[in-house]
Design a protein around this nucleic acid. Structure first.
Length: 263
DNA sequence: ATGGTTGCTTAGCAA
């Protein structure tokens, strides 16, 4: 009988500006000590990314940056053997929304799914197309028999229990049927939501609007996930939302999600 | 309630 020992801690966090959130990120890294961190909404180009500060904290970074909008990164204690930036498909898309890396044979894919703005808008169409492209990307590059993880801000709440007022949100952006269907189709490639599989009934939002005192009133949505293929889910030990990161001085509007695997 | 807040960039957009 093979004994599992090594703990792998994976985190995902939409930081909404790496520049503004750097002090909080450094505290987070020290407190949680994750092995791999997926970051979204850097809002910064690679040349302005704080590589030095993160290196001093023990992390190396792979960055797919963009001026003003989007931008994703992978922080890790060990160097990835391979890195992908973007889907490199037939679509010419300048938005920096996907970065992936392989760490000890485990591929971690970090995504910032388009928000979509409003159902029926051009941005909504782009969101649905992006999700279809992402499904093809996963299908073409990965096999659910192999260990891989998909982390990020999906900008979709899957179920009623992931929304503070599902009636009011019905058919709205982040909760419309086509978005939910696109997410289901992704999951049907063989991905399991690490948080939801461990806690089938637990309410645990990951995003609260900056406006309307949403956080103090707990008017949130669960739209950030860590998904794993079956070989990862076999080793899944825990998953939680670090709600405290939404409190205090200059929080992001998203809280980090952390999942641990005993490999 | 078509408001409200934050960040980037500098009046307007995106979330």
């Amino acid at each position: 009988m093979k004994r599992s020992k090594k703990l792998l801690k994976v985190a995902t966090w939409n930081v909404n500006s790496i520049k503004v959130r750097l002090p909080r990120l450094l505290n987070f890294l020290e407190r949680e000590d994750p092995d791999i961190v997926c970051l979204q909404e850097l809002k910064c180009v690679e040349g302005q990314f704080p590589f030095e500060e993160l290196k001093a904290a023990g992390y190396q970074a792979a960055v797919y940056g963009q001026k003003t909008y989007n931008g994703v990164a992978l922080l890790s204690k060990i160097k990835p053997s391979q890195v992908w930036k973007g889907m490199n498909d037939e679509v010419d898309d300048p938005a920096a929304r996907l970065i992936a890396g392989t760490f000890d044979g485990i591929t971690v894919i970090c995504v910032y799914v388009p928000n979509g703005q409003e159902v029926g808008s051009e941005k909504y169409q782009y969101k649905l197309k992006w999700l279809a492209r992402f499904k093809s990307f996963l299908k073409n590059h990965f096999n659910s028999k192999n260990p891989f993880v998909v982390c990020g801000d999906f900008n979709i709440a899957p179920e009623d229990q992931d929304v503070y007022d599902p009636k009011a949100w019905e058919g709205k952006i982040l909760f419309s049927d086509p978005e939910k269907l696109a997410l289901t189709e992704l999951m049907n490639l063989g991905l399991v939501d690490t948080f939801r599989t461990l806690f089938p009934k637990q309410k645990s939002y990951t995003w609260w609007d900056y406006r309307n005192l949403s956080f103090p009133k707990d008017l949130g949505l669960r739209i950030d996930f860590i998904l794993g293929s079956e070989p990862m889910i076999e080793h899944l030990k825990d998953s939680y939302v670090d709600r405290n990161e939404r409190k205090g001085v200059q929080p992001s509007d998203h809280a980090p999600v952390i999942s641990t695997f005993q490999m």
